[in-house]
Amino acid sequence: MIRAQDCMYLFEWATPVVCPETITSQGCNLTVSQLRYTFDLSKLSRSVKVPGSDFNINVCGTVADTKCKDSAVCLISEGLGTSYGNSKIMTLDYKREEQTVLMQYSGGDTCPEG
């Protein structure tokens, strides 16, 4: 409560209903208005081999292996590369309930039939 005056009580609290949350992204930056914070993922722009797997990833760029052209996630198996998403077709989102930044890639290779 902020103050009481005669029979009038004044309360104040923050609510997303009054000031709705906006989420904007540009490249590898995601800004959440209610948090007043920008997540900068651009520092993750380097190719990394995932330990214990055949996956190479580059969160904000393209993997170094040329078997997966423009790929952010690449599986190298039996000398062949399979793209799990194009680094140029990426979206960022924020889920408040889970306190999670989500990164989704599109434009990967089609799934093999079988």
Rank of each mutant, 00 (worst) to 15 (best):
K43E: 09
T22D: 10
L35P: 10
T66R: 05
P51R: 08
C60W: 01
K43M: 14
L35M: 15
E21C: 07
F55A: 07
A64Q: 13
F55W: 07
V32E: 03
I23G: 03
D65C: 03
S25F: 03
G61P: 15
R36N: 11
V48N: 04
L30G: 04
V48R: 06
V32K: 06
N58W: 02
K43N: 11
K49W: 03
V32G: 13
C28M: 12
L44F: 12
G52A: 08
G61Y: 10
T31S: 12
A64M: 06
V48T: 14
C19N: 10
I23W: 02
T38H: 03
F39M: 01
Q34P: 08
T31C: 06
Y37W: 15
G52S: 11
L41V: 08
D65H: 00
Q26T: 11
F39Q: 08
D40L: 05
P20Y: 01
K43T: 15
L44R: 09
S25W: 04
T38Q: 08
F39T: 07
L44D: 10
P51M: 04
F55E: 02
A64V: 11
P51L: 04
V32S: 01
Q26V: 13
C28D: 12
Q34G: 14
R36F: 13
N56C: 01
G27A: 08
Q26Y: 09
S42T: 15
G61W: 02
T62S: 05
